[in-house]
Design a protein around this nucleic acid. Structure first.
Lengths: 203, 203
DNA sequence: AGGGTAGTTGACTGAGCGGTCAAGGAACGC
DNA sequence: GCGTTCCTTGACCGCTCAGTCAACTACCCT
């Protein structure tokens, strides 16, 4: 009945699970979570329905697994991006760029994040990850403030503001309303950085 | 079968329709569009199922009507807010503030916008309204640029960036992670304005 | 009063849903 | 070859869903 969390999968099993996750990710992102049925997923892969329930307890659990995978992937990408940055400000800028690029590349994940944020059944799964990322960014902002690189302010609030810009612009790119050219990305990053910079006596 | 678009409603009819719209808005926002059934709506109001289909062709059409109402309300609020502003920059600032305040006040509408943006069946309904609002804001930005009040840049891109900040911060307020105090709003508006201001030789 | 229209009822339909399960096949260690 | 575990099948279950409709009531106009 319940799928044990520690089930040992053979290679065949791993591959099948991957297929399910990948195909479901694409369908959920394209057609929406609720409108996509389990029947549609297994039929799309040409397998029996029991296969689905061999690997997952429910459709909900599958989405949670997808979201978790995506969050870990994003986080790893961010960590790698800021690893060899010198100053706090540089870490912030690289973090912003890496997040935007990842979100553009992983369109399906991004859409699922957007959906999950609107559904009480899944939004809690996002919060932890978002909180970690925001706290992280806020730490860099606080350092930059201490170093006098940017204006003083609430680091978490500003992190969220940046996240808002990032999210919305990626949305535009996915909708085809914005070409993700270096110039456009620079403009977005610049908006954020000058927003952080705040009032200055000299620039 | 189909509800005529020009059906004459008596006062009683208008009130019933209002009840349906209001109750459905609350349920859709709270529980999600797909998980909320027509049965749940009519039972919540203590009426028969036929009532629903007397006023609306489908659950989808009802959501579309709600979204349309909400967009018109927001737009009216924005227009009123910037009516008596002197400079382009002041119009921008008042527009931002009015949008944030409206979104905080109309939590249900805001959540439905968020959901609709993730669902291909409804996102087209939002686009027109968003485009109008963005074009409008972009016009003020262009004027401000021409007047030398802010740095040159792509007005539409910057409008979207502001919209992104607005959206994300309102989200935070609704999640209880941010108190919408004047100071917090000022910080958000300031982030946007300095982002717009961009590089300056003097401030 | 009476006739028309606006509004209402709730049982009903047919389809589709998420999820189950007994049975059977494939891979692997022995 | 044989037993065990891993995996797969697809008919099936109970239920809920969006949407229908014939019969009915409330209201308004004359």
């Amino acid at each position: 009945m319940a799928v044990p969390t520690d089930r040992r999968l053979t290679q065949r099993g791993e591959e099948r699970r991957r297929q399910l996750v990948d195909y479901a990710t694409a369908r959920f992102a394209e057609n929406g979570f609720h409108p996509t049925s389990v029947a549609e997923i297994v039929e799309g892969l040409g397998v029996g329905k029991g296969v689905f329930y061999w690997y997952f307890d429910s459709k909900e659990e599958l989405l949670r697994a997808i979201l978790s995978d995506a969050q870990h992937d994003l986080r790893r990408t961010q960590r790698d991006a800021i690893a060899d940055a010198g100053s706090p400000t540089e870490r912030i800028e690289r973090g912003i760029r890496a997040s935007i690029e990842w979100s553009i590349e992983h369109r399906d994940y991004f859409r699922l994040f957007q959906f999950a944020a609107t559904d009480g059944r899944f939004s809690s799964n996002l919060r932890t990850g978002e909180q970690v990322a925001v706290r992280d960014a806020a730490r860099h902002l606080a350092e930059a403030m201490a170093a006098g690189e940017i204006a003083a302010g609430d680091p978490e609030l500003l992190s969220h503001a940046i996240l808002g810009v990032h999210t919305h612009l990626v949305h535009l790119v996915h909708r085809g309303l914005l070409d993700p050219t270096p110039a456009e990305l620079d403009a977005a990053v610049s908006f954020c950085l000058y927003g952080l910079l705040g009032p200055r006596t000299k620039g």
